[in-house]
């Protein structure tokens, strides 16, 4: 049965009706029109759906929307400052850290969590942090470079 829930998404309280089984990723995309969060797998491997829950990167395809009730959700749309770009977004652009762009929002959300808690990560630490984000286009090299660039600019 559907039930109304209120999600705090990107600083705004959004009320919507969901079934308990609805995945957060589906609710964000289909009901709240936040389609920057993508879905790339069904086993919690690819990380395309990464958002922040209470400031920490999680895979929104592995969280039920009802579990997220009452917690703060940030999506790629919420990370983007009005009229500008987040330093990580700028760095991904600068360093050609994306090709098809499908994995990019998830990559950026994971990288944001990494840098929030480890402002100057080594290359090995960056690659370790990206284990849960798959990219089929870039070979990761320029993604790593982008994150290093964003870290250097902090």
């Amino acid at each position: 049965m559907k039930r109304p829930i209120t999600l705090n998404v990107n600083g705004v309280a959004r009320t919507t009706e969901v079934e308990p089984r609805a995945l957060l990723a589906h609710v964000l995309r289909d009901q709240l029109d936040l389609t920057g969060t993508h879905i790339g797998c069904d086993t919690s491997q690819c990380g395309a759906c990464t958002v922040h829950l209470d400031g920490r990167a999680v895979k929104s395809c592995t969280v039920l929307a009802v579990q997220a009730e009452g917690r703060a959700i940030t999506t790629i749309e919420g990370l983007t400052p009005k009229g500008g770009l987040h330093p990580l977004q700028r760095a991904f652009w600068e360093k050609h850290g994306l090709q098809c762009g499908f994995c990019t929002p998830g990559m950026i959300m994971t990288a944001a969590d990494l840098l929030a808690h480890n402002p100057k990560p080594s290359e090995a630490e960056i690659r370790h942090a990206l284990e849960g984000n798959l990219c089929r286009c870039t070979g990761y090299q320029n993604i790593v470079a982008a994150i290093q660039t964003a870290a250097a600019g902090r």
Binding site: S44, G47, T50, L53, R56, A57, V58, K59, T62, V63, T110, D113, L114, H128, A129, L130, E131, G132, N133
Partner: peptide, 12 residues
Amino acid sequence: TEHIGDLQVRNA
């Protein structure tokens, strides 16, 4: 623990 799952999995 540092090698369980990945960053997002460890967060949740």
